[in-house]
Amino acid sequence: MNFLEKYDNFCIDLDGVMWNGHTAIPGSVDAINHLIKTQKNVFFITNNAALTREELQTKFIAMGFEADVKNLYTTGTAITKYLSRKYPNAKKIALMGMPGLRKCLTNAGYHIIYPAEMGKSLKTVEDFADFDVENDIDVIVVAYDVNFDYFAALYCSACLQNGAGFIGLNADRFFIFGKMRIPASGCSLRFLETATGRKAEIIGKPLSFMFELIAEEHGLDLSRTVMIGDSMESDIMMGINSGIDTILVLSGVTNRDGIEKYEHRPSYVMECLGDLLG
């Protein structure tokens, strides 16, 4: 299959496809730079909101990848679009998320409450009984956050029980860093969903919202567009939900045997991104 003849638009995941941790996956730099050199439209889609677009571009450059910042789509950039459409009157947000996400939301004009910081003075549940939980929180936004702890969850739970909106950037169970499976934001979401009986609205993969933003902004021909990722649960499922072809690469969280446990299938399977070049 000559993928470069078949497709004009390439939507590509990052972790497990282009790099693993801080190391580029062999062949990925050449593949990405060749696509851009041959004037293909390359869009990068990640559920990871830890970095801003500009910070992510710095990581690209350091590893040798070419990338236009406007073609970098994180759940951090998507959340501001989602909030403006679904919660147009929202002003105050309680956020579990890394600094890059906080910066995105602050720059968009939202007042951010950070429960992980507020809970540092608490030692017991009894302490929380006297804690002043603000009752004007419009939305709880949950993403991957290394500071997520019991008291942060307690604060978010109280806000949700007061009627705040509930958004999860993604429901990923884990991501790969080196040889380790690291618990991801889906673990935090399930904690809160179980405690409150509320179900979070998900904006990231495998839902199609992020792809819809790209398609709207760039006028993509879906028949000439492909999604490339390493996760059957998020990347490949997002492609299917978006009505486009998919390519699974085996350089990340999925091996060939692991495909069989899913009912859905990718359009194609490759060992790594470098195989795009044949």
Rank of each mutant, 00 (worst) to 15 (best):
F177N: 12
F128Y: 09
M238S: 04
L189K: 08
S267V: 00
V69H: 12
G168V: 00
T106S: 15
L56A: 12
A143N: 15
R53Q: 13
L213S: 10
V249F: 05
H264D: 01
D127V: 11
L222C: 01
A164Y: 01
D145S: 13
A31L: 07
A200K: 08
L207A: 11
R224I: 04
G64S: 07
V29D: 05
L192V: 11
C156R: 00
S121W: 07
A195C: 10
D8R: 03
F191S: 12
V253R: 02
T194Y: 09
M270Y: 11
M232W: 07
I45A: 13
L222V: 13
N135K: 14
D130T: 12
S234D: 11
C104W: 11
T246H: 02
E217S: 14
K199Y: 07
G168R: 04
K59C: 12
S223F: 06
Y262F: 13
N241P: 04
F209S: 10
L95H: 08
G229Y: 07
Q39M: 04
L154D: 09
L4S: 00
Y110T: 10
I244L: 02
T196Q: 09
D149C: 14
S223T: 15
V141C: 13
R198H: 08
T246G: 02
V133G: 01
L189V: 04
R181W: 00
E260C: 02
V226D: 07
G165T: 05
D145V: 09
F148G: 05
